[in-house]
Amino acid sequence: MSATKTSAGMSTEELRDFYLQYVALANKREFDRMADFAHEEVIMNGTPVKMADMVAEFYRHVDAVPDLHWEIQDLVVEGDRVAARLIDTGTPVREWNGLAATGASVSFAETAFYQVEDGKFKVMSYLMDTDAVRRQLAG
């Protein structure tokens, strides 16, 4: 029996694996492979963003937090949508998101939502718990 394809052109299991591969890409710093995962332009938190700018943002994050690691806690796939709750960890070595590096390591929640179109991310939204980061860096 073949798996039912979603409007994303993938089965639920394929879409789940696609997202797992995307997070693995981030953790391995293979941002130059982003074309395998995202359209040339995506809607990021409601704003059109070019893939090159999205890649540059990833590099900005790992430049400031070289050991930044994304760990999936919850993953829900429904139709062409993916929702994830992650715990992100790392130690900022320079200013990051307007916060000074203090030598402290941080662990914070990130919630992310995606819509996949033609086998790639088209809409991406995320929210990071920057208050938790601020408290942890302040000591």
Rank of each mutant, 00 (worst) to 15 (best):
V55G: 01
E30L: 14
V42P: 09
E57Y: 07
K28E: 15
R29S: 11
D36T: 13
D53C: 06
E14D: 12
E14C: 08
R60S: 07
L15Y: 04
A26N: 09
V42D: 04
R29V: 09
D53G: 09
T47V: 11
R16Y: 02
Q21L: 12
D32P: 09
H39F: 00
M44H: 02
G46N: 02
N45R: 02
R29H: 07
F31H: 08
A38V: 12
K50S: 08
F31I: 05
M51R: 15
T47G: 03
Y22F: 14
P48R: 03
A24G: 09
M51D: 10
P66T: 01
E30P: 10
A64Q: 02
N45Y: 01
D32E: 10
D67M: 08
Q21C: 12
A64S: 13
A26Y: 04
A35M: 11
D53N: 11
M44W: 04
E57H: 08
S11Y: 05
N27K: 07
A26H: 06
E57M: 14
R60T: 14
D32M: 11
D53L: 09
V65Y: 06
N27R: 06
D53A: 05
A26S: 09
F37C: 09
N45I: 01
E14L: 10
M54L: 15
V62G: 03
E30Y: 00
V65F: 02
F18L: 08
F31R: 06
R33H: 11
G46T: 04
Q21F: 01
N45Q: 03
D63H: 05
G9Y: 04
N45H: 04
I43N: 11
A52L: 05
Y19G: 10
V62M: 08
M44S: 06
F58M: 15
A64R: 01
N45W: 00
Y22D: 14
A35C: 13
M51Q: 14
A35E: 09
R33A: 12
L20D: 05
G46R: 00
M34G: 03
A26W: 05
T12K: 15
Y19K: 12
A35N: 11
F18S: 07
D67L: 06
E41I: 08
N27Q: 05
G9R: 06
Q21G: 13
F18N: 10
P48H: 00
T12Q: 15
T12C: 13
F37L: 08
A52M: 00
R60M: 10
M44E: 06
F31P: 03
V42F: 03
S11P: 12
A38I: 05
V49D: 01
R29A: 04
V42Y: 02
T12D: 15
E14N: 04
V49L: 13
V62K: 00
L25S: 10
F18I: 06
Y22L: 12
E13A: 14
M54G: 03
D32H: 13
V62S: 04
V42S: 04
A64E: 03
